[in-house]
Design a protein around this nucleic acid. Structure first.
Lengths: 295, 295
DNA sequence: CTTGTTTTGAAATTTCTGATACAGGTTTTC
DNA sequence: GAAAACCTGTATCAGAAATTTCAAAACAAG
């Protein structure tokens, strides 16, 4: 496809794979809407999505079989079997060469913003994991796995969404879970029933929000256990928190990144779900059943 | 239409599935001469030899098609397509999680769980970025940077939190931003003022939620532009969406991971903020001012 | 050498997949 | 605003692939 392309012979690996995926990405703009659907499906599950039958492929992409056919024809294949053969061969070649695994670190893409941003976020995740004390993580898991505890999630302006995310999962895994809005007017009255059996999981990163701090301080005063997910500079809530899990948040953006907090949240959800599996499983099944009934 | 015949199981923890190759090696002794030929061919080019047609496979093994068929039947498959499907799935699972393959189910707790979980999430992020078409990302940025557009965020049970997260940032960067609850009762009346100038940014991953789909379909019918953030299997919303950004979501958990979606969201926020900086800066400063006044 | 059993492949059959023609609908262009 | 060009899905068909049938070949035991 590319003798017209740049001859910037950068000493490519012996197998300079003109991956079909790459070509599709480049030609993406010139595709019709249906073709784009097909392309997206294929790229997102590359190359396995293309190994099924045309009908299956088309249906998953949300298009008709003929459109799928036109898509592969447009890519230069003589038919669907030809297309599949190419995918298989490419896959085999790639699997046999261990270095192909490293991935195309091609900066030449049109969205350097996205790829450099993601590298920064990945760095944050690694740093976050490294700096978490295993015992602390473990302690939080144990705390959240105790069915007798009441768990309340809360957060600030931006982190509130993370608290909701956590709550929506834990609510299914176990009982006695809720979400508390940050504004004092909304939680003042609920505080009367917060006590030693309660756990507050608070999300708070810089530009620490006073109302969240106030909530935690009040709850702590009443004997609740506070778990804090925050940034490395530690929200003032840390002073009243029993457990603190800090996450790195600096990204090449005018905003902080919450990916590290989300990682911790999801890891907590995963681990607690595993630990409470005996009781969580029937609950999850029940939710599933309700879903399908409504459908 | 859906091969997920297993409605009961709930994406079990990553217990290392016994590779078919392994089983064949064990049962080798009990095979007939023809079956041994088939087995040897398959093992020598595992699993690609099995991805061709029966005829091809049989011919390469030096046996007849019926013998090849008997071979796969004997392995417990209902037919050749079934056999091939298994090979593909095994291959995909192995390729997508190079690390999950070694782990004989980490029943362990705390830190090991956290670090392996984070590696999986990092893999998701890389895969997500690689599979985003730069032009698509760019197009979405342009769309969201258009001050004349109204932007509405929405999402499902879990992804709603991400939509809120996005909304809370964009709300500051630009005007005409809001969040729409997924339940039809809550948005039905708002639909009358949705039109060509509106953009719906929908978050929806598997166990796709019908109310979100309905919302998008209604909005699309009225001329709104739909941007969809979903998983690689594509929510049905993709059918009415102008732009689709898929993120990888499979993690060693009973739940899917939304980290990829968050990454895309934050990257969009960062890029749009940069692009609208002239107008975004004073807005951000104003918010800051209000904050400190209240303090 | 005969007989009963197992293994095997050629050919017939059935199933399903890939391909095509055509028509309705949409967008573009003038 | 009308016409042309272009997409896209439905219906249909041709052909290939998988599967079954059945009889011949290989083998083992008597």
């Amino acid at each position: 496809m590319n003798q017209s392309g740049m001859r910037h012979d950068r000493r490519l690996p012996p197998t300079a794979p003109p991956s079909l995926a790459e070509r599709i990405r480049l030609e993406m703009e010139s595709f019709t809407p249906s073709e784009k659907r097909a392309a997206h499906l294929l790229l997102s599950h590359y190359p396995f999505a293309g190994l099924d039958t045309v009908a299956e492929f088309a249906s998953r992409a949300g298009i008709s079989a003929p459109s799928a056919l036109r898509f592969v024809t447009r890519l230069g294949f003589s038919g669907f079997p030809d297309f599949q053969k190419h995918l298989r061969e490419e896959l085999e070649a790639q699997l046999l060469s261990p270095l192909a695994k490293a991935g195309p670190a091609d900066k030449s893409q049109g969205a350097p913003a996205l790829s450099s941003f993601s590298e920064a976020v990945i760095g944050n995740l690694r740093a976050t994991v490294e700096n978490i004390a295993p015992a602390e993580f473990e302690a939080v898991v144990t705390l959240l796995s105790d069915p007798r505890r009441h768990i309340h999630f809360t957060g600030g302006r931006f982190t509130g969404a993370l608290a909701r995310y956590a709550e929506s999962h834990f609510r299914i895994v176990r009982s006695n879970v809720d979400f508390i809005e940050g504004q004092p007017a909304l939680w003042r009255d609920r505080m009367i029933e917060i006590g030693k059996k309660d756990v507050i999981v608070a999300f708070d990163i810089r530009r620490y929000q006073e109302d969240v701090t106030a909530l935690c301080e009040t709850a702590a005063k009443q004997g609740a256990t506070i778990v804090l997910l925050t940034d490395p500079w530690l929200s003032p809530i840390a002073r009243v928190a029993r457990h603190v899990l800090p996450a790195h948040i600096v990204a090449p953006s005018n905003w902080d990144s919450s990916a590290g907090l989300l990682l911790l949240t999801e890891a907590l959800v995963a681990t607690v779900t595993k630990r409470l599996w005996e009781t969580a499983k029937p609950r999850m099944e029940a939710v599933e059943r309700l879903r399908s009934e409504k459908a």
